[in-house]
Protein backbone atom coordinates (compact mmCIF):
# COMPACT_ATOMS: atom_id res chain seq x y z
CA UNK A 1 0.00 0.00 0.00
CA UNK A 2 2.76 2.43 0.73
CA UNK A 3 6.37 2.93 -0.14
CA UNK A 4 8.21 5.27 2.13
CA UNK A 5 11.67 6.67 1.89
CA UNK A 6 12.67 9.82 3.71
CA UNK A 7 15.65 11.51 5.18
CA UNK A 8 15.08 14.55 7.30
CA UNK A 9 16.76 17.44 9.07
CA UNK A 10 20.35 18.25 9.95
CA UNK A 11 19.91 15.76 12.75
CA UNK A 12 18.71 13.06 10.38
CA UNK A 13 15.87 12.29 12.75
CA UNK A 14 14.46 9.96 10.12
CA UNK A 15 17.16 8.74 7.79
CA UNK A 16 16.18 7.05 4.56
CA UNK A 17 13.47 4.88 6.05
CA UNK A 18 11.44 2.73 3.67
CA UNK A 19 8.77 0.19 4.36
CA UNK A 20 5.41 -1.03 3.18
CA UNK A 21 2.28 -1.42 5.22
CA UNK A 22 -0.07 -4.16 4.12
CA UNK A 23 -3.71 -3.24 3.78
CA UNK A 24 -5.80 -4.07 6.84
CA UNK A 25 -2.78 -5.08 8.89
CA UNK A 26 -1.52 -3.88 12.22
CA UNK A 27 2.07 -2.70 11.90
CA UNK A 28 4.04 -1.56 14.91
CA UNK A 29 6.92 0.90 14.85
CA UNK A 30 9.24 0.36 17.79
CA UNK A 31 12.62 1.67 18.82
CA UNK A 32 14.44 3.37 21.68
CA UNK A 33 13.60 6.93 22.69
CA UNK A 34 14.73 9.44 20.10
CA UNK A 35 14.75 6.86 17.33
CA UNK A 36 12.57 9.10 15.19
CA UNK A 37 9.26 7.27 15.52
CA UNK A 38 7.09 10.31 16.16
CA UNK A 39 8.97 12.30 13.52
CA UNK A 40 8.15 9.51 11.09
CA UNK A 41 4.46 9.88 11.98
CA UNK A 42 4.66 13.64 11.58
CA UNK A 43 6.13 13.12 8.11
CA UNK A 44 3.41 10.71 7.09
CA UNK A 45 0.59 12.88 8.43
CA UNK A 46 2.09 16.04 6.96
CA UNK A 47 2.66 17.86 10.26
CA UNK A 48 6.29 18.08 9.11
CA UNK A 49 7.45 18.32 5.53
CA UNK A 50 10.08 15.77 4.45
CA UNK A 51 13.46 16.92 3.11
CA UNK A 52 13.37 14.15 0.59
CA UNK A 53 11.58 10.93 -0.04
CA UNK A 54 8.08 9.95 -0.98
CA UNK A 55 4.98 8.52 0.63
CA UNK A 56 2.03 6.93 -1.09
CA UNK A 57 -1.33 5.71 0.03
CA UNK A 58 -3.13 3.39 -2.38
CA UNK A 59 -0.63 4.50 -4.99
CA UNK A 60 -1.43 8.21 -4.57
CA UNK A 61 1.41 10.50 -3.51
CA UNK A 62 0.88 12.40 -0.25
CA UNK A 63 4.36 13.61 0.61
CA UNK A 64 3.88 17.19 -0.63
CA UNK A 65 0.45 17.78 0.86
CA UNK A 66 -0.50 19.85 3.93
CA UNK A 67 -1.94 17.82 6.84
CA UNK A 68 -5.58 18.72 6.20
CA UNK A 69 -5.30 17.37 2.65
CA UNK A 70 -3.61 14.20 3.84
CA UNK A 71 -6.50 13.70 6.25
CA UNK A 72 -8.81 13.78 3.25
CA UNK A 73 -6.79 10.96 1.70
CA UNK A 74 -7.94 8.77 4.56
CA UNK A 75 -5.07 9.09 7.03
CA UNK A 76 -5.97 9.92 10.58
CA UNK A 77 -3.90 10.02 13.73
CA UNK A 78 -3.69 10.34 17.47
CA UNK A 79 -0.97 12.20 19.34
CA UNK A 80 1.62 11.03 21.83
CA UNK A 81 0.67 13.84 24.21
CA UNK A 82 -3.09 13.85 23.73
CA UNK A 83 -4.37 16.79 21.68
CA UNK A 84 -8.09 16.98 22.24
CA UNK A 85 -10.12 20.17 21.97
CA UNK A 86 -10.35 20.64 25.74
CA UNK A 87 -13.24 23.10 25.93
CA UNK A 88 -15.50 21.12 23.63
CA UNK A 89 -17.61 18.18 24.69
CA UNK A 90 -16.66 14.60 23.90
CA UNK A 91 -19.40 14.46 21.28
CA UNK A 92 -18.22 17.73 19.69
CA UNK A 93 -14.66 16.42 19.59
CA UNK A 94 -15.81 13.37 17.69
CA UNK A 95 -18.03 15.51 15.46
CA UNK A 96 -14.88 17.38 14.31
CA UNK A 97 -13.77 14.01 13.00
CA UNK A 98 -16.76 14.13 10.65
CA UNK A 99 -15.55 17.43 9.23
CA UNK A 100 -14.04 15.94 6.08
CA UNK A 101 -17.14 13.78 5.56
CA UNK A 102 -19.43 16.81 5.40
CA UNK A 103 -19.58 19.95 3.34
CA UNK A 104 -21.69 22.91 4.54
CA UNK A 105 -19.83 26.20 4.41
CA UNK A 106 -20.02 29.51 6.26
CA UNK A 107 -23.02 30.85 4.42
CA UNK A 108 -25.28 27.82 4.57
CA UNK A 109 -24.39 27.46 8.27
CA UNK A 110 -25.27 31.07 9.07
CA UNK A 111 -28.57 30.82 7.22
CA UNK A 112 -29.28 27.32 8.55
CA UNK A 113 -30.25 26.11 5.09
CA UNK A 114 -32.14 22.79 5.08
CA UNK A 115 -29.15 20.95 3.59
CA UNK A 116 -26.83 22.01 6.37
CA UNK A 117 -29.40 21.11 9.03
CA UNK A 118 -29.86 17.60 7.61
CA UNK A 119 -26.11 17.21 7.46
CA UNK A 120 -25.75 18.36 11.06
CA UNK A 121 -28.22 15.67 12.11
CA UNK A 122 -26.21 13.05 10.24
CA UNK A 123 -22.92 14.18 11.77
CA UNK A 124 -24.42 13.90 15.22
CA UNK A 125 -25.92 10.46 14.65
CA UNK A 126 -22.78 9.06 13.12
CA UNK A 127 -20.65 10.47 15.95
CA UNK A 128 -22.93 8.92 18.57
CA UNK A 129 -22.54 5.57 16.79
CA UNK A 130 -18.77 5.84 17.07
CA UNK A 131 -18.99 6.78 20.74
CA UNK A 132 -21.17 3.71 21.25
CA UNK A 133 -18.66 1.53 19.40
CA UNK A 134 -15.93 2.76 21.74
CA UNK A 135 -18.18 2.30 24.73
CA UNK A 136 -18.08 5.95 25.82
CA UNK A 137 -21.53 7.16 24.80
CA UNK A 138 -22.19 7.82 28.50
CA UNK A 139 -19.76 10.75 28.60
CA UNK A 140 -20.84 12.35 25.32
CA UNK A 141 -21.86 15.61 26.99
CA UNK A 142 -18.79 16.04 29.20
CA UNK A 143 -16.08 18.56 28.49
CA UNK A 144 -13.13 16.65 27.01
CA UNK A 145 -10.53 18.53 29.04
CA UNK A 146 -12.10 17.45 32.32
CA UNK A 147 -11.84 13.70 31.64
CA UNK A 148 -9.29 11.33 33.17
CA UNK A 149 -6.28 10.54 31.02
CA UNK A 150 -7.34 7.06 29.94
CA UNK A 151 -10.75 8.30 28.83
CA UNK A 152 -9.13 11.13 26.88
CA UNK A 153 -7.11 8.60 24.90
CA UNK A 154 -10.24 6.75 23.96
CA UNK A 155 -11.94 10.00 22.92
CA UNK A 156 -8.94 10.79 20.73
CA UNK A 157 -9.29 7.32 19.22
CA UNK A 158 -12.95 7.92 18.55
CA UNK A 159 -12.22 11.29 16.96
CA UNK A 160 -9.63 9.76 14.64
CA UNK A 161 -11.99 6.94 13.77
CA UNK A 162 -14.81 9.35 12.96
CA UNK A 163 -12.91 10.50 9.88
CA UNK A 164 -13.40 6.97 8.49
CA UNK A 165 -9.68 6.54 7.85
CA UNK A 166 -8.17 3.81 5.75
CA UNK A 167 -4.89 4.26 7.64
CA UNK A 168 -4.87 5.08 11.32
CA UNK A 169 -1.66 6.30 12.98
CA UNK A 170 -1.58 5.69 16.73
CA UNK A 171 1.26 7.36 18.61
CA UNK A 172 1.82 5.47 21.87
CA UNK A 173 -1.83 4.69 22.56
CA UNK A 174 -0.98 2.90 25.81
CA UNK A 175 1.41 5.51 27.26
CA UNK A 176 0.40 6.43 30.78
CA UNK A 177 -2.31 3.78 30.98
CA UNK A 178 -2.48 1.01 33.56
CA UNK A 179 -2.60 -2.67 32.65
CA UNK A 180 -6.36 -2.84 32.58
CA UNK A 181 -6.66 0.21 30.34
CA UNK A 182 -3.88 -1.08 28.08
CA UNK A 183 -5.80 -4.32 27.58
CA UNK A 184 -8.84 -2.23 26.66
CA UNK A 185 -6.80 -0.27 24.11
CA UNK A 186 -5.42 -3.47 22.64
CA UNK A 187 -8.94 -4.78 22.24
CA UNK A 188 -10.01 -1.52 20.58
CA UNK A 189 -7.15 -1.63 18.08
CA UNK A 190 -8.07 -5.16 17.07
CA UNK A 191 -11.70 -4.10 16.78
CA UNK A 192 -10.76 -1.16 14.54
CA UNK A 193 -8.73 -3.43 12.28
CA UNK A 194 -11.77 -5.70 12.11
CA UNK A 195 -13.59 -2.80 10.45
CA UNK A 196 -11.13 -2.77 7.57
CA UNK A 197 -8.81 -0.07 8.87
CA UNK A 198 -5.06 -0.38 8.48
CA UNK A 199 -3.27 0.48 11.69
CA UNK A 200 0.26 1.81 12.15
CA UNK A 201 1.13 2.05 15.81
CA UNK A 202 4.08 3.38 17.81
CA UNK A 203 4.29 1.64 21.15
CA UNK A 204 6.74 0.91 23.94
CA UNK A 205 4.63 -1.71 25.68
CA UNK A 206 6.19 -4.87 24.23
CA UNK A 207 3.51 -7.28 25.35
CA UNK A 208 0.93 -5.11 23.57
CA UNK A 209 3.11 -4.89 20.45
CA UNK A 210 3.83 -8.61 20.31
CA UNK A 211 0.18 -9.45 20.90
CA UNK A 212 -1.50 -7.37 18.26
CA UNK A 213 0.93 -6.62 15.43
CA UNK A 214 1.26 -8.53 12.19
CA UNK A 215 4.49 -6.78 11.28
CA UNK A 216 7.06 -4.80 13.23
CA UNK A 217 9.41 -2.07 11.99
CA UNK A 218 12.34 -1.22 14.26
CA UNK A 219 13.98 2.22 14.16
CA UNK A 220 17.14 3.32 15.87
CA UNK A 221 18.82 6.73 15.51
CA UNK A 222 16.56 7.49 12.57
CA UNK A 223 17.44 4.36 10.63
CA UNK A 224 15.40 1.26 10.03
CA UNK A 225 17.36 -1.60 11.54
CA UNK A 226 14.87 -4.42 11.21
CA UNK A 227 11.48 -5.33 9.83
CA UNK A 228 9.60 -8.56 10.21
CA UNK A 229 7.15 -10.75 12.03
CA UNK A 230 6.97 -10.33 15.82
CA UNK A 231 8.57 -13.74 16.35
CA UNK A 232 11.51 -12.83 14.10
CA UNK A 233 12.02 -9.43 15.69
CA UNK A 234 12.20 -11.00 19.12
CA UNK A 235 15.17 -13.07 17.93
CA UNK A 236 16.88 -10.32 15.94
CA UNK A 237 20.37 -9.69 17.38
CA UNK A 238 20.57 -6.09 16.18
CA UNK A 239 17.28 -5.28 17.85
CA UNK A 240 18.36 -6.88 21.08
CA UNK A 241 21.58 -4.90 20.90
CA UNK A 242 19.97 -1.47 20.56
CA UNK A 243 17.41 -2.25 23.22
CA UNK A 244 19.71 -3.77 25.77
CA UNK A 245 22.92 -2.02 24.76
CA UNK A 246 24.98 -5.20 24.65
CA UNK A 247 28.23 -4.64 22.85
CA UNK A 248 29.13 -8.25 22.27
CA UNK A 249 25.75 -9.87 21.87
Amino acid sequence: MKQLSRSFGGLRAVDDVSFNVEKNSITAVIGPNGAGKTTLFNLISGALAPDSGEAYIDGRPIHRLPPYRIARHGISRTFQNIKLFPHMTVLENVMIGRHIRSRSGFLSAMLRLPGSRAEEQQIQERSMEILALMGIEGIAGQEAGSLPFGKQRIVEFARALATEPSLLLLDEPAAGLNMYETAQVSELITKIRGRGVTVLVIEHDMSLVMNISDMIVVLSSGKKIAEGLPSDIQKNREVIRVYLGEDNA
Partner: peptide
Protein backbone atom coordinates in the same frame (compact mmCIF):
# COMPACT_ATOMS: atom_id res chain seq x y z
CA UNK B 1 -16.98 23.55 15.52
CA UNK B 2 -14.06 23.78 13.11
CA UNK B 3 -13.32 27.32 14.36
CA UNK B 4 -13.45 26.21 18.00
CA UNK B 5 -11.20 23.26 17.20
CA UNK B 6 -8.58 25.70 15.87
CA UNK B 7 -8.76 27.43 19.24
CA UNK B 8 -8.37 24.09 21.05
CA UNK B 9 -5.43 22.69 19.10
CA UNK B 10 -4.46 23.91 15.68
CA UNK B 11 -2.31 20.85 15.04
CA UNK B 12 -5.07 18.40 15.89
CA UNK B 13 -7.62 20.38 13.89
CA UNK B 14 -5.34 20.18 10.88
CA UNK B 15 -4.86 16.46 11.36
CA UNK B 16 -8.65 16.06 11.35
CA UNK B 17 -8.81 17.66 7.92
Amino acid sequence: RALRSIHGSEEAANAMG
